[in-house]
Simulated assay, not measured.
Amino acid sequence: MARVLQSPGKYVQGKNVLAEMADYLQDFGEKVLVIADPVVDELFSEELESGLKGKEVVMEEFNGECSKVEIDRLKDIAEDEEVEMVIGVGGGKTLDTAKAVAHYTNLPVVIVPTIAATDAPCSALSVIYTEKGVFEEYLFLPKNPDVVIIDTQIVADAPVRFLVSGMGDALATYFEAAACDLTKAPTIAGGSQTMTAVSLARLSYDTLLKYGKSAKAAAEAGVVTEALEKVVEANTLLSGLGFESGGLAAAHAIHNGLTVLEETHSNTHGEKVAFATIVQMVLEDRDPVEIERAIAFCKTVGLPTTLADLGVTEVSEDKILEVAKASTAEGETIHNMPFEVDAEMVKDAILAANNL
């Protein structure tokens, strides 16, 4: 199997770069559909107006869930308005929706995260949910975003929880890529792991451990520091390339399983992934020192380490078995692990991780 690495066409990160975004859009047309979170127009209207100066803009508010219904609604608008480019501005589900809309309309897509909460922005992937927020499927796209633009001042001004959530999502990247490197499981990029992808995944993890606490402190102060820049890059670019070309394994499958519990719906993607990463480490019997290091990191920055932290206060084996069954469904990435995994094993690992 060929080794494959893929990435966005261009990645732009820095303080106040949103106001300069027109510099990076010159090759993609003049009429744009902007799909934005409801708060974006209120908070960043001046920056967007400056960044899109000279463009004809069709602004459409995102309805909150990356569902097939929402994608179809926005696709129809893009076609009716005859736009030349799709721009997604906001959080992970908004960005995934913009990527899907661009795919179905065969248009370029520019991704503008306003938070560093997931590694979704750089990927050729949209995670599709039902309208009630339950994971439904992955939509694998033929190409990565044409441009990703992330303004670190906007990230610093956002609720700190989102930056921390991004650390939770990025926490899984190395452990999943390492598992896939053993099995040579095909990745989203369409081949086996390059050394580059696994190394980027490891760099993401090392960056979190070294700079995570300092980056959180900077975000709490609403300022951009080198530590914040490093963690935003780890959350977004390093983790994005690492998961896409390194592979997904148990942690994200267990995240998907956790979505069957209504109690977890108020948690972010990264918060669920953080706990699921600990579960994967237990499942694969990693060195207890390494597991404790991951748990300590989560506690330091405020990521969940127990089911109660995720809102699951009534824990029963039957309930957790339902999570485990969803985690091990046919086609789930947990089957990329270097050993056979069944629902009973996952149930036991979840309960053990919870007790740890």
Rank of each mutant, 00 (worst) to 15 (best):
G9Y: 01
N16L: 12
V17A: 00
A19D: 09
E20L: 14
M21L: 06
A22K: 15
A22R: 15
G29W: 00
E30L: 12
V32H: 01
I35N: 01
L48W: 00
S50P: 10
G51R: 00
K53Y: 10
V57D: 03
F62Y: 11
L74A: 06
I77A: 10
A78K: 05
E81R: 14
G88Q: 03
G90V: 00
G91I: 05
T94Q: 00
D96Y: 02
T97L: 02
A98Y: 01
N106A: 13
V110S: 00
I111S: 00
P113E: 03
A116T: 01
A116K: 03
T118P: 03
D119H: 08
A124I: 01
S126H: 05
V127W: 06
E131T: 14
F135Y: 12
F135H: 08
Y138N: 13
V147W: 00
I149N: 00
T152L: 02
I154T: 08
D157R: 11
D157V: 10
P159F: 02
S165E: 09
M167R: 04
T173F: 05
F175Q: 10
P186A: 15
I188C: 13
V198Q: 10
V198R: 13
S199I: 13
Y205P: 09
L209P: 09
A218C: 04
A218M: 06
A218R: 03
E226T: 13
K230W: 12
L237T: 09
S245Q: 06
G246A: 04
A250W: 05
A251T: 07
A253Y: 08
I254E: 08
H265N: 11
A274W: 00
Q280D: 07
Q280L: 07
M281V: 08
M281D: 07
V282D: 10
E284A: 12
D287P: 10
V289M: 15
E290N: 10
R293S: 14
I295H: 08
I295A: 06
T300G: 11
G302E: 02
P304W: 04
V315L: 05
E317L: 11
E317R: 15
D318G: 15
L321A: 12
K325H: 11
A326V: 11
A329Y: 11
E332N: 13
H335I: 08
H335L: 04
N336S: 10
P338Y: 10
V341W: 06
E344T: 15
M345S: 10
K347Q: 14
A349S: 11
